[in-house]
Amino acid sequence: MLHIDRLILQLPHYPHWWRQEWTTCIDALSLHIAPGEVHAVVGASGAGKSLLAAAIMGLLPSAARLEGALHFQATPLTPARQRQLRGRQLALIPQSLSALDPLARSRQQVRWAAQRAGLGRPAAQQRADELLAHYQLSHAATHYPHELSGGMARRVLIAMAQVSNAQLVIADEPSVGLDPTQRDRVLAKLKAIAREGKAVMLITHDLRHALPVADRVTVMYQGRGIETATAQAFRGQGEQLTSPYARSLWQALPDNAFSTQPSVLCQEPAFA
């Protein structure tokens, strides 16, 4: 469904008033997501995970330089096509809760998302109410974003992504700030969306909780895709993982060795 081939993303920065330099934020990343799959993208902060989501959605700052191939349903994703598909075929669950319109009640936000997806107003309203009830937000339907807790706001964002009936859902750190029960519910919901034949990209730093729902995992480090492995490869000592970085990430978890080779912390990992 989504094919990314050797994607390179560069952003300008200005070390001095008129000296421009380019920072490579994503470096030759290749990634393929099939329908029905939850594909986790994990890595440290600053690895370029959120920029990858922005590149797919066409939400990069205008100065960004993008190279490489980006295909959605076998057709190149051009800026015009991204504008057209955004909110319909492509949905993003953003990391920042400020993505909600501060002047709209939850019910309206979800209804608007349904209307963007092509539903008529009465149908959209009905669908919005159904989903709010499903996410146990009925009592918060008339609340404004500032009246919602972090977990409630995130559920509103997920309801908006779901109502759009998108074929590709990108969830950027959807479980941050949620307690374990809420987190498991959100991740299970993403899995259910994938089971309907849609593709889900789960961007997270939380490897452990991504594994039970993910089919495949891509490990990113400093903008590069270090390794793509099946979720089953993350077990035992990590023998089935080919790259040292992915193995250290696995070993560093508190349920595993909770230790790692010190060299991995300061050195760049070798390429798989």
């Binding site: 890595g43 440290a44 902060s45 941050v176 730093h205 250290s248 909770f258 790692t260």
Partner: peptide
């Protein structure tokens, strides 16, 4: 360490 990846958390 909630918002850190496993390696940063460990260090």
């Amino acid at each position: 360490s909630t918002m850190l990846d496993p390696i940063t958390q460990l260090s």
